[in-house]
Nucleic acid binder design. Structure first.
Length: 215
DNA sequence: CTCCCGATAT
DNA sequence: ATATCAGGAG
């Protein structure tokens, strides 16, 4: 079956199984989403939300983060891991927002990618969820599932992003990205994929290869 | 390629 | 003990 046809079938199943798939980070504005997504690198959304509940009461806007004491900010976000890099990036990001973007988060890929600690994954999360601009988000889940299902044989996230852009309708980019994450967390897990409870097994290369091993 | 890095599931 | 978690930079 053609990849586009398989994706269409998979999306029908995902629409049923994960009808309210959405960003699971807590945020009230684009700046909070940007910072939460920077914090989410190699960290669960659940942990990020615990940290940001206090963080966004202490730091209300880009000025507050830009003027923050670095060591204090490091301590405020410590449990998300990579806290020295993340604190430095968030401070510098907010300094740039004030200097070049009137304290606001830019709504285009080019400017977002110039911010420290912001790569294509983070930029596309912000564009899709804060500004409703379609973007394929290739995180660890999207990468793993794309490879297992057989939607892309590339390992470079940017190549996977472009592969998925070709086979997924543009209006579904953001939703499909969320659905990959939901399916990756609940069924197609990194360590122990639960193929016997997978509803897209017949459209998955890895699933088909595992068929005989499922009890 | 390596490094950054804490929390949690297995 | 080790792999993994909505990665990015040098």
């Amino acid at each position: 079956m053609e990849k586009k046809e398989r994706v269409k079938k998979i999306m029908q199943i995902f629409d049923n199984d994960y009808e309210d798939a959405k960003c699971t980070l807590d945020y009230k504005n684009p700046l909070q989403l940007l910072i939460s997504t920077q914090l989410a690198a190699q960290c669960t959304d659940e942990r990020v939300n615990i940290v940001t509940e206090k963080l966004y009461k202490k730091y209300k806007n880009a000025h507050d983060f830009a003027n923050a004491d670095l060591k204090e900010l490091e301590n405020d976000i410590r449990s998300t891991g990579f806290f020295r890099n993340k604190a430095k990036n968030i401070k510098e990001t907010c300094r740039i927002l004030i200097e070049k973007h009137n304290g606001e988060v830019p709504d285009n890929l080019e400017d977002l990618l110039k911010l420290p600690g912001v790569g294509r994954k983070t930029a596309n999360v912000v564009l899709g969820n804060a500004f409703a601009i379609p973007g394929i988000v290739v995180d660890t889940h999207a990468k793993r599932l794309s490879n297992r299902i057989g939607l892309s044989c590339n390992t470079d996230p940017e190549k996977i992003e472009f592969d998925l852009m070709k086979i997924v309708p543009k209006e579904s980019w953001t939703k499909f990205s969320h659905q990959l994450v939901f399916h990756g967390r609940s069924v197609c897990k990194a360590r122990k994929p639960d193929c016997k409870n997978c509803n897209i097994l017949e459209y998955c290369n890895f699933g088909q290869s595992q068929k005989e091993n499922i009890q």
